[in-house]
Structure formats: structure tokens, C-alpha cells
Design a protein around this nucleic acid. Structure first.
Ligand SMILES: NC(=O)c1ccc[n+]([C@@H]2O[C@H](COP(=O)([O-])OP(=O)(O)OC[C@H]3O[C@@H](n4cnc5c(N)ncnc54)[C@H](O)[C@@H]3O)[C@@H](O)[C@H]2O)c1
Ligand SMILES: NC(=O)c1ccc[n+]([C@@H]2O[C@H](COP(=O)([O-])OP(=O)(O)OC[C@H]3O[C@@H](n4cnc5c(N)ncnc54)[C@H](O)[C@@H]3O)[C@@H](O)[C@H]2O)c1
Lengths: 205, 205
DNA sequence: GTAAAATTGTGCAAATAGTCACAAGCAAAG
DNA sequence: CTTTGCTTGTGACTATTTGCACAATTTTAC
């Protein structure tokens, strides 16, 4: 109970949540570990073991009650609230993030967008005004933002990150294709499609 | 030598490549495993062990010759060629992918873009004409495309995937937030920012 | 009310991944 | 040409992760 949950398990919870949501949408009420596993290419045993870290969440003979499990995972992941997100760098990627309407029911909402290009600052995307990167401090505090996405060119990503950290950001989703240096208490996740493509091309021989 | 290389090692090679490229750009000629490790938060021992699967690539006392190692990894990952990529679903995400100029020197080039929306078909993005999804077969064969990115809404992703597979696509990069069912000889990688954000929010308590 | 079927939770075993530490090899200095 | 310093490659060890198999529990069928 009080033990540290392995990172790799935390990484699977969002996947479980995604498929549970889908089943709920289709009107299902219960799901077995086997069934979930087949929808995710993960063994039922692994799903059971993962979930068992958080208590006895299933019912023998029946499986897991979908609605209950969704609620439980949301609670574990701290997404039974909506986190305000800042996006920095409103080019193609930042634009797509700002306009994406799939975040809200997954626990996040883009509430502040920043760019350094004076031609962009002041214009609107999806009802949000692009703010000058110089206003980072003010906006982050006002909106109580703890998570930011970095979508600037690689050359600007580290300095933008430094500003974000300095202003209290504790977690970063980085789209720039570089490794970011941050203090130990700040977390970074990376998205780089070229990395995925390179993994794929390995197997295409 | 003839053994199967673990997936997890293949997954790290693109990261090594990225940082090697950067060092080369900065004019460096040699890099030690220690140095690379510090730039990636990976232990030097691990990098050495990973690379040792592919032969004796370093020189004792000196480290790894950057240019040589880059070439070697490119060869291992099969990116000493440029792969043509198809993007299906030219909304915000597909648009960003089509316009991204960072792929080419990493082994990929978007050469075909598809949508089902008649208003979009025929218009241009980055010099490429958006093709009707119905022309998938023709274009994929003509351009000899083996890898595709799916950037349609989730509701269309599985059927689009089925068409892609039917037309000979062997690897898919999926942006839609669902798990795709594909035959065993087809590979899928997933990108879903909400999944990353949910991992982050877990640690923000 | 009992037997059969289903499904969890979990101890244990197996497999996979990562670290340590050092012999071996190379380069530079003297 | 020997010594010193550095860094790889790797065997042995440790840690983590996954899979197996089954008792325990619940549901369903008759
Ligand atoms: N487009 C893609 O599909 C794609 C794919 C993979 C990775 N990426 C990466 O994502 C990042 C963004 O890509 P993009 O295609 O949107 O680029 P882009 O050039 O379209 O947009 C970058 C934006 O960042 C802004 N910017 C630059 N410096 C800034 C600073 N210091 N502070 C705030 N804003 C700043 C620019 O004004 C611009 O609006 C890049 O690092 C790119 O390599 C993009
Ligand atoms: N925008 C983001 O930042 C973001 C983030 C995460 C995930 N996603 C996911 O990526 C996907 C695309 O997102 P988006 O924001 O670009 O959506 P979008 O609605 O802007 O674009 C979707 C495009 O797909 C096309 N399309 C629909 N059905 C099709 C079919 N059968 N064949 C070909 N094309 C078809 C539509 O015409 C449209 O142009 C979605 O699944 C979304 O959930 C987007």
C-alpha cells in the first residue's frame, strides 16, 4: 500500500483507462482482465497484478466494474480534476494542441498559449489569445499552471524550459527533438515522431 | 551477432543518434559512453552494452568516433535511405506532419497525403496535393510506400488502418487514441499526448 | 441447494534488463 | 619503450518485470 508504484505500471494505467472508457461508451458494465488484455495486447495476469497494487478492485467470477475502475484510475492519476496546461510555441504543433478538443475529458485543458513572434502575439487560436513569452510569469501564476507543453524549435526549447521551471512549472511535455535538462523535481515526457519511425524502419529491414 | 536484438535496445538507438548528431554539429569528433550517458540520463555502462550488440564500435581510451557511429546506427536502423511516408487524415495533426521539415534528414519524407473530406481533396499542403482516400491503392503502389501515419479521428482509424494494411503498408504511426488491430507482420507505434500528460499528473500528486 | 463455470489476487518461477567492476586495449607523456 | 591515464567490452551479479498456476471467491445453471 504505502510502497512506491513502479513507473512502468503508472505508464499502463492511462491505457487501461482509455479502453475502459471505450467499453463504457459501448454500454458494457463489467470487463475481465482477459478481455481488457486482448484489447491492448497485454496479458490478463499483468493487468490483474498492476491493478492489485491499488487494492482489490475486481470481483471474482465477474471481473472489474467498468465505471468503478474508471473512477479509481482517474483518482490514482489525479485526473479527477482538470489541469490547466500552457503551450509554448504556437506553430503547427502548438496550434494543433491548442485546438485539440480531446484533452478536457481526459483531465487537461489548454488555458494559456505563448509565442515569441510579435506577429503572432495578440492573435487568437480557439478563443485563446496568444500571449507574449515575456508574460509567462504573470499568466502561469494567475492560471495556476503546473504543466506545460514545449513546441518551439529545438534551438529555443532549453531556454524556454528554463523559464518555465523558474516560474514554477513542475512537468513538461516536450515536442522538440532534444533532451531537456531540468532539476530533479521537474518531470519531462517526450514526443518525437521521428524516433517512432526509426524504430519501425529497423524492423522493415 | 545473429541473435535477436531486444526491442528496448532498438528503442534507444534513435536517442543515441539524436545526441550524436548534435555533438557532430557542435564540431565534436569523439564521444565517450559516459558523456553520451550524461546527455541522455542513461548510464555509460548501458550505452556500451547496447552498442556492443552490433560489434566493437568504440576505441578503448578514446571513446566512439561520432561520425562512424552515426553511420553505423543509421545502417542498423535502415535509415541510410529515405522512406516515403503516407499521412492519412489532413486535419491539424496531419497538416503539421505534412509541413514538418525535420523528417528528411532523419530518414523519412512525407510523399503522399490523404483525406476523405471532399472539400480538402485536391488542395495543396507544402506542395503536396491532398489525395482522396479512395486512391490509396494506386498512390501507395506508385510511390512504394511501406509506412503510414494515421491522423484521422478515432472513429475512422481502424477502418483506415485496414485499408492501409490491405494495400501493403507494413508499419503504422498512429495518432488516434485507440489501439489498432493489425496482422502479426504489421507494426504499430502510438503517439498520444494525453497518455503522457496523465503519467505526469500522477506524480504531481 | 449443489455442482460447474468464471475470474480474481497472488506466491513463486522465469525471463528480461540494468549495474558493477575490471581485464584489455589504446594514446600520450616522458 | 615504459609508464600513466583513460575508456571500452564484458562476465558476474542484482534488480525489475513478466508469466504461470492455482486457491479463493462469486455467479450461473439446473
Ligand atoms: N510539425 C511536426 O509534425 C513536428 C513533428 C515532430 C516534432 N516537431 C517539433 O515540434 C516543435 C515545433 O514544431 P512546429 O512544426 O510546430 O514548428 P513551427 O516552426 O511551426 O513553430 C514553432 C513556433 O515556436 C515559436 N517560437 C520560437 N522561439 C520561441 C521562443 N523562444 N518562445 C516562444 N515561442 C517561440 C515560433 O514563433 C513558432 O511559432 C519543433 O521542435 C519540431 O522539431 C514537429
Ligand atoms: N490535435 C492534436 O493535438 C491531437 C493530439 C492528440 C491526438 N490527436 C488525435 O489525432 C487525430 C487527428 O487529430 P486532429 O486534431 O488533426 O483532427 P482533425 O479533426 O483536425 O482532422 C482529422 C482529419 O481526418 C479526416 N478524416 C476523417 N475520416 C477520414 C477517413 N476515413 N479517411 C481519411 N481522412 C479522414 C478529416 O477529414 C480531417 O481532415 C485524432 O484522432 C485526434 O484524437 C490530436
Amino acid at each position: 500500500m504505502g510502497e512506491e508504484i513502479p513507473k512502468i505500471i503508472i505508464g499502463r494505467l492511462p491505457l487501461y483507462l482509455r479502453v475502459l472508457r471505450r467499453l463504457k461508451n459501448e454500454g458494457e458494465v463489467y470487463a475481465s482482465s482477459q478481455e481488457l488484455g486482448e484489447m491492448l495486447d497485454i496479458s490478463g495476469a499483468q493487468i490483474r497484478k498492476d491493478l492489485s497494487h491499488f487494492g482489490e478492485l475486481g470481483k471474482r467470477g465477474t471481473g472489474y466494474e467498468i465505471e468503478f475502475l474508471i473512477e479509481k484510475i482517474r483518482q490514482i492519476l489525479n485526473i479527477n480534476q482538470v489541469w490547466n496546461i500552457a503551450v509554448v510555441g504556437i506553430g503547427d504543433v502548438g496550434h494543433a494542441l491548442a485546438r485539440y478538443n480531446g484533452f478536457v475529458n481526459r483531465g487537461f485543458k489548454v488555458t494559456a498559449i505563448f509565442d515569441s513572434n510579435e506577429k503572432k502575439v495578440g492573435t487568437e487560436v480557439q478563443g485563446l489569445v496568444i500571449r507574449d513569452i515575456k508574460d509567462l510569469k504573470e499568466v502561469i501564476h494567475k492560471e495556476d499552471i503546473k504543466i506545460a507543453a514545449v513546441a518551439t524549435p529545438a534551438s529555443a526549447a532549453q531556454s524556454v524550459t528554463d523559464s518555465l521551471v523558474e516560474n514554477g512549472i513542475k512537468a513538461i511535455l516536450n515536442y522538440a527533438p532534444i533532451y531537456l535538462k531540468v532539476p530533479d523535481d521537474v518531470l519531462v515526457e517526450y514526443i518525437d515522431p521521428a524516433i517512432h519511425l526509426q524504430k519501425l524502419s529497423y524492423y522493415l529491414g
